[in-house]
């Protein structure tokens, strides 16, 4: 019979000790919404399952000069955080549309990112926010930018002896708008056919783009940034026409696959359409915020 030992460390140090002990025969688990599914499907068969659920230092949302989120913070906690909703609406858009409330009560942001599914909902917003991923091991700590975090479907730079501890996100400059859109066929319990996050920072006129970030999921083996489209928008006046062009460029940067969930042509087409639409929402949010602040 298939079994595993289940460990519930209470601090990161203990988790790292267990990781060193069991090495590649272990698997970290937080919410379990991906790991347990993989275990049942026999994709993984670890000897030791190390839970990060009971480690307080991994479960927090801190707003100081920058935003820091503990890796074992549930999607539901993020969804219910007033700071996240008002200051980082792209994260809110993403975490409030994952699975169901029951799933979000269990699933964590670190788990979603470390699972590294091409369709991970939290990846596009974290990409457009230039998130720093803080990783610890018994040898010390390192921090890497999120656009270097994903290595392939289910693969990240995290080594078997490492734990992702938290995510650092700088407060965006003034006159910034951001949004995430999950393109699905039903309103709950669904994976995106395509996920799009856009972040736009503007000059004081709320027209000229001084910073552009576009994050896409399900269009490549990992969540990606559409850098050419970002470059095109930088310094440009943002309007429907320029966003339309950005959409076209972003679509050309995609290399989607045809699966039972959607065809390659449809995903590319949706990248074009949705980059424009999410860009417009971001622009609107930027102007809304600047009005609020002035």
């Amino acid at each position: 019979m298939r079994t595993f030992d289940y460990f519930k460390p209470v601090c990161v140090e203990e988790a790292l000790f267990l990781l060193n002990k069991f090495a590649d025969k272990s698997k970290l688990v937080a919410g379990g919404t991906d790991v347990m599914v993989q275990w049942k499907k026999r994709i993984i068969s670890p000897v030791a399952l190390i839970s990060l659920r009971n480690i307080p230092e991994l479960n927090f949302i801190r707003m100081n000069d920058c935003l820091e989120i503990g890796s074992a913070t549930t999607h539901r906690s993020l969804e219910l955080s007033a700071d996240i909703k008002s200051k980082f609406p792209a994260i809110y858009d993403a975490v409030s549309n994952i699975g169901s409330v029951q799933v979000r009560n269990s699933a964590t942001i670190g788990g979603n990112l470390c699972n590294a599914a091409p369709s991970a909902d939290s990846a596009p917003p974290m990409l457009v926010l230039d998130t720093g991923v803080n990783i610890v091991s018994s040898d010390g700590q390192r921090s890497i930018p999120i656009d270097q975090f994903f290595k392939g479907p289910g693969k990240t730079v995290v080594q078997p002896n490492e734990v992702v501890k938290s995510f650092s996100i700088a407060t965006p400059p003034e006159n910034t708008g951001m949004a995430y859109w999950k393109h699905t066929r039903r309103s709950a319990m669904d994976l995106p056919i395509l996920g799009v996050a856009v972040l736009l920072s503007f000059d004081e006129d709320i027209k000229t783009c001084v910073k552009a970030r576009i994050g896409l999921s399900v269009v490549a083996p990992t969540p990606i940034r559409a850098r050419k489209a970002e470059e095109f928008l930088l310094g440009n006046v943002v309007n429907e026409a320029s966003l339309d062009e950005a959409g076209k460029i972003a679509a050309s940067e995609c290399s989607p696959r045809t699966t039972i969930r959607g065809s390659d042509w449809y995903r590319r087409e949706m990248a074009r359409v949705l980059v424009k639409r999410v860009g417009l929402i971001s622009t609107e949010r930027a102007s809304h915020f600047s009005k609020l602040e002035s």
Binding site: R186, M189, D190
Partner: peptide, 27 residues
């Protein structure tokens, strides 16, 4: 609009409630 057992050479490709899409209370 959404429901379909998808097959490929006789094999059911979506034997789960994620990919066999019945509508939910949120729709």
């Amino acid at each position: 609009l959404t429901e379909e057992i998808q097959t490929n050479h006789g094999r059911v490709m979506n034997p789960n409630l994620l990919d066999y899409k019945i509508l939910t209370a949120k729709d």
